[in-house]
Write a protein that binds this DNA or RNA. Structure first.
Lengths: 331, 331
DNA sequence: TTGTAGGCGTTATCAT
DNA sequence: ATGATAACGCCTACAA
């Protein structure tokens, strides 16, 4: 019964047509639910397809139709809850528009990111969503000139070829710092474990807010692999720290526990992205929220607009929000 | 200069051949680096391709070659660190074998999981890696009969059509319980937030270990959305809990903090999967480690073996390991 | 070393 | 309502 599939050969639409006793064009129409097919032949075709275990070959379909019905998402890293919300949004909107979503994992590696983008383009995705600020500008330019591309992170100077949908990282960092100032903190630090454009924008926000308040400013960059030194922080009098994301904040809270530093009493901590982790930690984490799901949905719409003919680049900026939890004291 | 790309038409190999002044077959050979092409015409072709911004169309290539060079990975959920390690392994091995990896997100939803699997099969991936125990058996059977498929989770009764590579969940749970018993615990509970086959296997292990030790057994299932009730646990005298994964354990530790329950003093906690989260929590989490990266790598090899002709199903079981940290007392 | 020609599985146009 | 037939972009014998 599976004999027909032997030798690795999968049934084609011709096999289906033969078995149903119709032409392949009719089979094609019936399988796609086209109008103008008699009920009887439709049933014949559908039954034959079922019996043979027929699956459309999307390579062939994509080739002749010129569109793949695919939206590609390339992520900077898989285990980043921030990305999860975005993918959820992309997937939700794509489903409504009858498109399918495939994901590529850039593994925090510019080379791999480029490989993934190449793969997507060669697969002729109808649109490309990039969630990373580590993609070389040149790669973005080329991608954007070949397929509707939208970047979902802050970019210092986004190429004209791509759409961007981001949340205002400068403002978000300002929000966080202002919250700390209102709570009475005077020595505020920014701690980052990544040197991306995103992090740079947040640094700008921190500097801006602290300058306005005429307070001293401490910027710390601790590369992945290196240990965070809380002692040093405390010694320099820092009593509040904004982290580049929730994960980094989790590290800080963990170290504070270990070293008997009270959070928020001796050290207030704020994360960024407001991921599920923020609610999971103890004390729960004050964080900056971005509308990830909506941003993902908008990305798909941006692609659809491009396909429909829009030529100017989209520059959309969402306003982040402060979510106060227990890792900072109420003002 | 981009004029040639106008009207949405992308350059094809014929455009490249024309511009290089050679036949399309020669262009094809040159582009793929085939032997038997003169240096001069190779350069001509490569230059032309570069100038035109040529990209191979993998639909066309896949159609004529019968293989796509793609490995599809379908994940139960994106924000699960356990999956991340597996994908890393798959991607690493695939790269060595010159294949590309695309990922589908099942969003913890059997229907969506099936959609993703369908998408992959229609894309004619050369192999399918499924990391979910929520896929209906029938879907696995069909997938396995159409493309080399390997499932990377525990399956109660795996279909003959698919390969399985899993770690021994029964044994892992036993390990955890035995560790707790040795540390002097008498009232041990298992807490799950999911009713998968995976969780069931772990329950089996817990029951086995506790029966052997002639100790009482408490199995708790708290569905997503519902709150975990630590009070109730304590009231019933439970002084140690094994969770279905690190995420659930994180919730428990958080509740313990809130309710002033000492971990591990009053309540010992063990997670499962030994994800990055385990090291991030305070107290750091004792957990059961699975060789995720290796399992991912083996999955790709299993696919390659199938492609090379193997017909018997692969049943590979890895032995998990206990990683003791601070959320349980040393015996 | 290079070119010609046929076909992969599907859709779409044009007849019938 | 149905059926031939011509693409789609690429690879690969086979011929030259």
């Amino acid at each position: 019964m599976v004999a027909e599939l032997a030798a690795g050969r999968r049934p084609t639409i011709i096999d289906v047509a033969k078995r149903a006793g119709v032409s392949k064009s009719l089979a094609s129409r019936a399988l796609r639910g086209d109008a103008g097919v008699s009920t009887s032949s439709r049933d014949l075709v559908l039954d034959a397809a079922q019996e043979l275990g027929y699956r459309p070959n999307s390579a062939a379909r994509s080739l002749v139709r010129g569109v793949s019905g695919l939206v590609g998402v390339v992520l900077n890293q898989l285990d980043n809850q921030h990305h999860t919300g975005i993918v959820q949004g992309v997937q939700g909107r794509a489903k409504e528009l009858n498109a399918r979503v495939i994901i590529g994992n850039g593994a925090q590696n510019p080379e791999e990111l480029q490989r993934q983008i190449d793969t997507m383009i060669e697969l002729r995705v109808d649109g490309l969503v990039i969630v990373s600020s580590w993609v070389p500008r040149q790669v973005l330019e080329r991608a954007g000139s070949e397929v509707p591309t939208v970047v979902l992170t802050h970019l210092a100077d986004p190429p004209a070829e791509v759409d961007t949908i981001a949340s205002d990282d400068v403002y978000g960092a300002q929000l966080a710092v202002e919250h700390l100032i209102q709570a009475g903190h005077q020595r505020i630090a920014y701690l980052s474990r990544s040197a991306s454009a995103t992090s740079q924008a947040r640094i700008d926000g921190v500097v801006l807010a602290l300058e306005t308040a005429q307070l001293p400013c401490t910027i710390l960059q601790v590369d992945a692999g290196e240990d965070i030194n809380l002692q040093e922080l405390s010694a320099s009098g820092v009593d509040a720290v904004l982290c580049n994301n929730d994960l980094t904040a989790a590290e800080v809270i963990r170290l504070a526990h270990e070293q008997q530093v009270q959070v928020p009493g001796q050290l207030a901590v704020i994360g960024y992205d407001n991921t599920a982790l923020a609610r999971l930690l103890y004390p729960s984490l004050t964080s900056i929220d971005q509308p990830q799901v909506n941003m993902g949905r908008r990305a798909v719409d941006a692609i659809a607009e491009r396909t429909a003919g829009r030529t100017e680049a989209l520059r959309e900026l969402y306003t982040p929000q402060l979510v106060v939890r227990s890792s900072t004291a109420q003002p």
